[in-house]
Amino acid sequence: MGVELHLPLIPDVELVAAKAVEVVGRDLGMTPEDIESAAVATVEACLNALEHGGNSKILVRVDVVEVEGRRFLQAEVEDHGVGFDPRAVPGAGASRVHGCAAKRGWGLTLIRELMDEVQVRSRPGLTLVTMRKGVGEGR
């Protein structure tokens, strides 16, 4: 029942990916809050891909997977840009209000906070962000 989307680089296209997460999450019986968290995380992954993915289309897959007996909604966002070092991305920390110029760059932090499992693989030519949100009991 997975959804695969090839997103062109047009404004607000990340909302298409969010809608796919919403539809699949609803079908899985996830809570509105969990669906919304997964949708926002997917939007952030798409924004990163739009910003750093060069001129290639973005590939988004939304599916349900089972890992060690647990079911997850899984969203994957793939681009073919220059790639980046995930370890070099700042983690969640103090507020960036007042005195700190860097108010941007929160995407990965939000993804990690909103999802249950996150894997980022990146090298020049391929970045793949895999995000999972648990479904139902046993979370």
Partner: peptide
Amino acid sequence: LTPTIAKTFEIMGLAQY
């Protein structure tokens, strides 16, 4: 705010101020 938006505000420090 929805719960998720409230959480993002907390993560990004908006809720502190």
